[in-house]
Structure formats: C-alpha cells, structure tokens
Design a protein around this nucleic acid. Structure first.
Lengths: 375, 375
DNA sequence: CTGAAAGCGCTTACAG
DNA sequence: CTGAAAGCGCTTACAG
C-alpha cells in the first residue's frame, strides 16, 4: 500500500500549502493571519479564502516554539484533579486566577502530579508560568521550576525564603478562633488538621498548617494551657475524612466540648458526623472551621470559621505571575489577612469543664513566637 | 551595551549546550532523558550531570512541535472562568475529566472564550482534544475544530447530527419532576430556566434547555395543560440571578405554588429568596431543581431535584476523547439517564388551585414527541 | 508590498 | 553504542 501517499493526501495543510494555493509566500500567509497591515487587503482576502478552502488554521505548536509563549497559566496541584475538585476551596481560588486569565486572554492549565511526581509535571507542562498550590515541602519541584526558568509563585505553601509567594496569616487566624472558644469557656478542645501530602523530612514553620497549630498554641498559652492539653488529629482534607475522624474523636473520653477544624470542608464532615452521632451542635459540641467557603453559611447550624480571601488570593497570585512574565518588578510576598466569622456552630459549653469554671477573658499574653501584626 | 552577549550569557541552555558539556551528540542528550536504553549508563550519568550543572531541562515546546502531542486535554468553556467556577456543577464535571487525566498522565486546560470569541480560543489552544461544554449553537466553533483536525466531544450542547456527544435525557428528567409536582396537585407552576449564552438565530430541539422545556410540556399535556398555563423565566445561571428572578416571580398574582428550576444552583438562590420573602418552602411554595449537586442535600429544606450523573458525564467525555486521540473506534453518542430525587422541598399545595380540586394521578399519556425510552 | 532564509529546540530514522 | 542530518510549522528581520 502506498501508505505514504495516503498519508500525504490527508495530512494537515500547512502555511506552505496555503501559500502555494494563493500564489504567495509563506510570510504573506503568516501576515494575513497575524498582522493584516503587512499585506494588501486583496491579497489577504485571497490568502484567507485559500486557507478556508484547504481548511487551514495555523496550529499553535509552531507559534509556541517560535514565540516562546503559550498564553497559558499553569496551576500546579498537590493532588490529582478529582481530589482537588472535591474541595470547593479550589473552585474559588480558580475564580481569582480566572479573573486574571480573562483580563490577559490566557487559558488555565490544571497540572496534577504526573505519576505521583510533581517534578515530572513541571517538566512537561507547556505554560508561561506556574501557580504552585499547597506544596508542603520542597522535594525538587522548586529546583525544576528554576531550571525551566519560568516564573512561579507559591500559594499556601511551605515557601523557602525569597521565593515569590502569597500567603494568609494562618497563625493569627487559628489563634483568633481558638481564643474565641477559650473565651466561651471551652477547655477540652480537639483539633482536626490536614495531614501532610507526603512523608516529608521536616515540616517547617513556613508550612501553613504548622503556623495554624502555632496560632492555636498562642491562644492556649494566653490562658496558661499548652499543646499537651489538647488532642490533634491529622487526616486528608476531604469531607469524608472529616466525618470519620470526628467519629473517632468523639469516641474518646472525656469527650471534647469543642472541635477546631482547620479546613471548612472537613468541618462540614464533622457536623455531619456529630449529627449522625446524635450530638447537638453547638449544644453538645462546638465546631469551628477555616476558610469561610460559601457553603459555611448553609450548614445547620451555620459554621463559625476563619474567613480568608480566597478569590483575592488567586487573583493576586495570577497578577504576580503576569508581572513576572512581563519581566516587571514585582512584590515578592503578599500576606493576606483572615477574619474570625462567628456564627451559630459555637457557644459556651453546657457545663464548665475546669475546676475554676468559666474562663474570664483577659488581655492575651504576647504569643510565644512573633507573628505578623495586623494593623 | 553588548546586549547580545548579556543575553547569550543568560539564555536558556539547550540540548546543544549539554551535548557540548558532556562531550556527546544532541541525540545522546535526548536519549538520556527519554530513552535510557539507548545510551550506556555511564554516558547517561555524565549527560544528566552536565544537564544538572547547566540547569538544563528539555522544554516542552520542541517536543510538542516534534511529536504533535501536548499531553493536555482542553475544556472549552461557554463563559469566562470565574463565572464557570461559580457553579459547583463544573467542579464535579471536572472531577470526571480529572479521573481520565490521572489515568492518562495528562493535564487539563480550561479554555474560556478569548475576547468573547470561542473560535479564537479554539484556534490558539495547544491541546490534544477538546471537550466542548454547553455550546448553545454552532457559531463557527465546530468548523474551527474541524479545521484544526483535533478530536472533540460536545457535552450539554446543541450538538449537530453526527457530532460526537455526551448528553443526558433532559426531556425525561424535566418531565418527571414536573409530573411529580402535578401529581402533588400543583397547577400554578413557574419555570426558571437558563438564558441562552448568546443571541442565537434559532434554538433547536438539540439544545438541552429546549429539551427540558419539551419535557415539562409532556407532563403538562398528560393532564390536559399546555405551556400557556405556566410562566417561564430565563436568566443567567447564577445563584444571585435565581434569587432575583424568584423575587420577581413571587411578586406576580396569582402567586405560583411551585417553582420548577432547571439548575440546582439557581434553585439555591430561589430558596434563599423565598426565605427572605418570608415564604415557607414547601409550605407556601414547592421548589425543585435539576442536577442534584451535593449541596442540594444541605439546603433547608433539602432540595427535590433531578439527579444527573455529572462525574460520569465528565469521565465518559474524557474517554471519548482519549479513544479519538488514539484513533480508535468510538461510540459517537452517549445518552445518560436522570433520576428524580424526592426530598422535602416539594409537597402538596396548601389549597387546591384548580376548580376541580386536587389532581388525581393517572397513567400519563404518551408524550407529544418521541423521547428516548428508559429501560 | 513581498520573498527567501534563518531559527525556535526538540526527536528519531538512518548510517556508521 | 553514537553522530550527523532532517524535519516538525511557525514567525520575523532582512533584503528587495
């Protein structure tokens, strides 16, 4: 079989074919598509007609190689896409990035680990820059980003010194919500945190969840308690894991009167679990979250939580990237503030749980470690 | 300034540089990265060391041009990314596509209109295939897809005959939920539908929302009513638009006793609005949705709705695309079934609204137009 | 206003 | 096991 001929017959037309059909050079074809001022209107029409005839459209692969631009922003994800999309947090974060994409005329590439390797994912992605989400420790990804010499910005990450990053004041947020529960009189507090993505050698203070735990300790210290006085469970960040972990926690005695959950999604699961256990929220157990997803207002009772500006975080991360792609100066870091949102899922415990009864609010002591002050 | 030298000094290393540094050919460099069996271990180590030294990593642009593969799936979106991400429907749909991406080691590119033009977006996207979402009429996008000779599959679209597509039985679903309300005794029914994305010349029966309206008419016809007996409002598919439209609908007299909303997201807004108007759901007004998003179980009251297999839809669309990319035979169409989920947001109206009182359930007549039968 | 040519950086069939 | 060469398809500086 003359496979070659058959193949040639159905191969995609190139600018060469169009040039031949229109009786012009390949340059003219390129100009007709990209810079109409460089060819006469008549010639342009002829070229476009020939292109239509041959069903030709300039494929992006050639342009990408030539221009070194993909017109696409990459979002490097800590987990595979189904798991990421389970958390409404990401939908909101992508809304912020999407605002930038709309403005800049770019597409958004969701880049999950490739066969468990984020390094490989970085290596293969055809994008103009990376927003790196929730990188819990540098396992080579940043080195690979540097090698590729592409702009990047770390978000919710364990960002090394000097790396461009957008973060929130995790520590203050966690301190505020814990202090809120302590002021209500709670003393038997359980914390539900997010487990690290991988076995990592040493979680550092830069890790957002380490910072949140530190914030909890700040609040505890202010009333003379320490981490030893609370229990901390770490599970994957899913609603179902929040559900299961809450069941386990509530099986312990003495039962906690308050549950500090470090992600709204897991807090929803916690409320589900308490409901199924026949425990009243907040009558039997107070529950707090972290994020203030829109859904936090729809739970019954509505969720007391720490609001973070998720959409703004996405937008700012995108803006950082655009500046870097353009080679403009950029702020290297941005720290966004959280706000405690008090709703019905938290109230004083049914009975005082410490010998001295209800906690009397007092001026909090200075935290154990310096934290960014809020103005 | 010797700008050229400065540029040369900091220009990205290429396989040529690495080859020179390691004292091998560029082929060897390529093999070291892509096909280790083609070079000796010692040579490979030397090459990789040189690459590390020079901070070289093979950029995707060359490979893409050469291989004609991007390892990326495109999702062509009907709106810009912020608007799309507002609807939890898409998070679930992307979960399904994401399953395929995980399996195939691909990334997922979100491709919004480029300066309002989907044709431009198609032209510029560097992907191996397109999932086209909610295309409400062919305004050139499909022609451009054909020109690019890339595989595509239409989802929730006004798909032309013969185009690969994944759809649900919109008509049956809408008929079932309307029939449910009619059987409960409702007669004053308002429908809240999604407005077309653009001014289109002629919505056709292939349009999912046209099919849903047809399903509503089927159910009405079975009790001797017609479209003239109901009111239909069309608004953009957002929670806020659902809220506002419901306020407007409830200001009409006589007030409807049931609201058939053709997207859960808008139904959530409708429940919000009824709550704010001091109207009880379902006491004063029954509300039904369409989709069965997870959130439909969290509204109070929980939402009666038409469940569609959103994640499966995404997975199947992705599988279609993968088959097509591989050049395998593929099923051209897939029709997925919906199921009516009855929850607390619907109940009989407070008082009979027709002269003859409550509707007596009877065997539904055959629908006006043939619909795909469910087995 | 148009054409010939170089070059973006890779991969792989082919020859050694 | 390795090297020289062709080619993927475009864009644009340069010369006419």
């Amino acid at each position: 079989m003359t496979a070659k001929d058959a193949h040639a017959a159905r191969r995609r037309p190139t600018s060469r074919d169009v040039a031949a059909a229109a009786g012009v050079s390949r340059s003219a074809v390129s100009f007709a598509f990209n810079d109409p001022t460089r060819v006469s209107t008549a010639t342009r029409e002829r070229i476009l007609a020939a292109a239509r005839e041959l069903k030709y459209t300039p494929p992006p692969s050639g342009r990408t190689l030539r221009n070194g631009r993909t017109q696409s922003l990459g979002v490097l994800l800590p987990h595979d896409i189904p798991k990421v999309m389970e958390n409404p947090y990401y939908a909101r974060f992508l809304m912020g990035l999407g605002q930038v994409c709309t403005r800049e005329g770019m597409s958004l590439q969701l880049i999950p680990p490739l066969g468990d390797s984020l390094v490989k994912a970085v290596r293969h992605a055809a994008v103009d820059g990376f927003v790196v989400c929730g990188l819990d420790t540098d396992r080579g990804e940043i080195a690979e980003l540097t090698r590729r010499a592409l702009p990047y910005v770390l978000v919710d990450s364990d960002a090394p010194e000097g790396a461009p990053s957008v973060d929130i004041d995790d520590r203050d947020g966690a301190r505020d919500v814990t202090q809120h529960l302590l002021e209500l009189g709670h003393r038997r507090i359980a914390v539900l945190s997010v487990e690290p993505r991988s076995d990592r050698p040493a979680p550092t203070y830069r890790d957002p969840l380490v910072r949140r735990i530190a914030g909890i300790e700040d609040a505890l210290a202010a009333v003379g308690l320490s981490r030893r006085d609370i229990t901390v469970a770490e599970v994957p960040c899913t609603r179902m894991d929040g559900y299961r972990a809450t069941q386990a926690i509530m099986a312990t005695r003495p039962r906690p009167t308050a549950l500090v959950v470090l992600a709204d999604l897991m807090a929803f699961g916690a409320i589900d679990a308490l409901h199924d256990l026949g425990l009243d929220v907040p009558g039997d157990v107070s529950v707090t979250g972290f994020d203030d997803l829109p859904e936090a207002q729809w739970t019954r009772p509505r969720l007391t939580t720490v609001r973070q500006p998720i959409v703004a975080k996405g937008r700012i991360a995108g803006d950082f990237l655009i500046s870097a792609i353009r080679g403009e100066d950029q702020h290297q870091h941005q720290l966004l503030q959280t706000v405690l949102i008090t709703r019905e899922s938290s109230k004083p415990p049914a009975e005082p749980v410490t010998p001295d009864g209800r906690y009397q609010p007092s001026v909090p002591q200075s935290p154990a470690r310096p934290v960014p002050s809020r103005t």
